[in-house]
């Protein structure tokens, strides 16, 4: 066990935990933040995606001890009111979620994509959003990312 200081959603949090524990479980069990989901535990499904210094990262395979100097953003902190990030706005407009279980991860992966590439092509999306959705919402994810890009880029602007 060790006392770690983490920066999560702009807040400093202290946890007493084995530094080898994956960030996912520290979020869910030590900090009670259950928006980030467990799907596979082996970096395959993306349900556990968070941002580490802005980069989409699968937290199930990330020892918490390796991120104590990083800025971590989870789905709970993506936007102040939980619905105003362009990705969230577009997701609602396209009614992307079915069961919704994968969507925290899909949204975090897509938000990171948009930050890196404000006007992504279908190929960019296919490369960067590799999370599993068993309900099969991929078509709407694609469409919603394009909508979010339009919401983000000022009219007439091109990235």
């Amino acid at each position: 066990m060790a006392m770690l200081k983490l920066s999560i959603n702009g807040q400093s949090r202290e946890v007493d935990v084995d530094p080898e524990t994956p960030l996912l479980w520290v979020l869910r069990e030590w900090l009670g933040m259950t928006g980030t989901k467990y799907g596979c535990g082996v970096a395959q499904c993306g349900a556990c995606t968070v941002h580490v210094d802005g980069v989409a990262t699968r937290s199930c395979s990330l020892p918490v001890g390796s991120v104590d100097a990083s800025k971590i953003t989870t789905i709970e902190g993506l936007s102040p009111d939980g619905m105003s990030h362009p990705i969230q706005v577009a997701w609602l407009q396209h009614e992307v979620p079915q069961c919704g279980y994968c969507q925290s991860g899909q949204i975090m992966a897509s938000a990171a994509l948009l930050a890196a590439k404000p006007n992504p092509t279908d190929a960019d999306i296919a490369d960067m959003v590799t999370n599993i959705c068993r309900c099969g919402t991929y078509q709407r994810i694609k469409a919603a990312i394009h909508t979010a890009a339009e919401l983000t880029i000022p009219a007439g602007g091109k990235a």
Binding site: R28, G32, M33, T34, G35, T36, K37, Y38, T74, I75, E76, L78, S79, G82, M83, Q88, W91, L92, E95, P97, G100, Y101, Q103, S104, I107
Partner: peptide
């Protein structure tokens, strides 16, 4: 839909 966009929806696995 809304609670599926911000991590608020509590699935059984999220029960505390």
């Amino acid at each position: 839909t809304v609670d599926k966009l911000n991590g608020k929806l509590t699935y059984a696995i999220d029960v505390q």
